[in-house]
Design a protein around this nucleic acid. Structure first.
Length: 363
DNA sequence: TCTGGGGTCCTAGGACCC
DNA sequence: TCTGGGGTCCTAGGACCC
């Protein structure tokens, strides 16, 4: 028996949930985001595969999506609905008896000892399909990093994008549904990819690496750790090189998620320049946060206010609570005190309030 | 027609203490 | 004349992810 990590990812999850409860949308280009009005400020949460053919994708402004695809069906985000389906998915996974770590509404890691990980992957897909009618993709690896990246190679693709170098594990043109990425094929599959293909490396880090002459995963894997650490610090530097080598020492855990903070934020349809109104909005957010803190059952220790000014410049300031508290008046007062720390009174695009909980004791 | 909302983790730099 | 240096805590910001 070998220890495997599986990464399970639901296909176009949010759009699929919407189609499930509105079957007439099946096969149509569906875009979910904001309050469903594509003339407003907001971005795409998920686009169905049909919508993606119009160049609509997650993170795209809704207004741009509407321009690219005027005939797309635009729906509002319905968190409660997705959470309910997600709970069913995760229950189905746990029902298989393996250690399951939930990573979001639509993805989870599963640790399992087996000699047939592809067979277990099919069990996973069958269980999810039976519980929710939803399709999923499974990445198989020797650690979380490999499993996560493997999942991307197993995803259905309608745009004819080429698969990895040795994607021939499945017949060409068919949907693999699962993909195995291990130390054995790591550099064959990943070596020539840009570093941004790695989990945790975004555009900014890729640009900094490029300044060091590092462009591909192979480049980074062969880089001098001391040089990278010099640029990125003693924690991130070595981690970057290890990641490029396909190494990941983190383990899959079934420990329940304990949030470090709870926040609420709003982007206004029109920027606000009246600071009396800004204060009133902060008070309102503080009220919502108080409810979230009460629901969490743990007191807050600090309150942070976020302000995004026009056009898109963001700043934060925080205030510690004198003592841990879940009291509405104290949280509201701290939020207003944090707001006073902003010296700038320019028009405001977004306001946020976040409550931080005390750090959990080390295990 | 720009650029949501919910999070986490790490770093840099200032304050403070000895 | 001169302004050391180490450790720790806190804050704001950066970067990334779903």
């Amino acid at each position: 028996m070998t220890a495997w990590v599986l990464h399970v990812d639901l296909d176009q999850f949010i759009a699929a949930v919407e189609v499930l409860r509105r079957p007439e949308l099946h096969g149509k280009p569906v875009v979910v985001g904001g309050d469903g009005d594509p003339t407003k400020r907001g971005v795409v949460a998920t686009a169905s595969y049909e919508a993606r053919e119009f160049g609509v994708h997650s993170g795209l402004p809704l207004r741009t999506a509407a321009r690219r695809c005027p005939d797309c069906v635009f729906l509002p985000v319905d968190r409660a609905a997705y959470e309910a389906v997600s709970d069913d998915v995760m229950a189905a996974l746990r029902g298989l008896g393996a250690v399951t770590e939930v990573m979001g509404w639509d993805e989870a890691f599963v640790a399992v000892d087996t000699d047939d990980p592809e067979g277990f992957a099919r069990d996973v897909q069958r269980a999810i399909k039976a519980a929710t009618q939803l399709d999923s993709t499974v990445g198989i690896g020797e650690n979380r990093l490999q499993a996560k990246l493997a999942c991307g190679f197993g995803k259905p693709s309608r745009d004819g994008a080429p698969g990895p170098v040795d994607a021939g594990q499945a017949g060409s043109g068919t949907r693999p549904g699962a993909f195995r990425l291990t130390h054995a094929n790591w550099f064959t599959v990943m070596g020539a990819s840009p570093v941004s293909a790695l989990w945790g490396i975004g555009a900014k880090t890729a640009a900094k690496l490029a300044e060091l002459g590092i462009a591909t995963v192979s480049d980074l894997a062969a880089a001098d750790i001391a040089v990278v650490a010099q640029r990125f610090g003693p924690t991130i530097g070595p981690w970057l090189v290890a990641t490029a080598r396909g190494l990941d020492s983190s383990h899959v855990t079934a420990e329940p998620y304990v949030p470090r903070s709870r926040g609420r934020e709003v982007t206004f349809q029109q920027d606000i320049d009246d600071w009396d109104r800004v204060r009133a909005e902060v008070v309102q957010l503080a009220g919502l946060i108080t409810q979230d803190v009460a629901a969490e059952g743990r007191p807050a220790v600090r309150v942070v206010v976020k302000v995004r000014y026009r056009p898109f410049f963001t700043s934060t300031h925080g205030v510690p609570l004198g003592a841990p508290s879940a009291d509405r008046a104290e949280i509201e007062q701290a939020a207003l005190a944090a707001l006073e720390k902003f010296p700038d009174r320019r028009p405001v695009r977004l306001l946020g309030v976040r409550a931080e909980f005390a750090a959990q004791p080390e295990p």
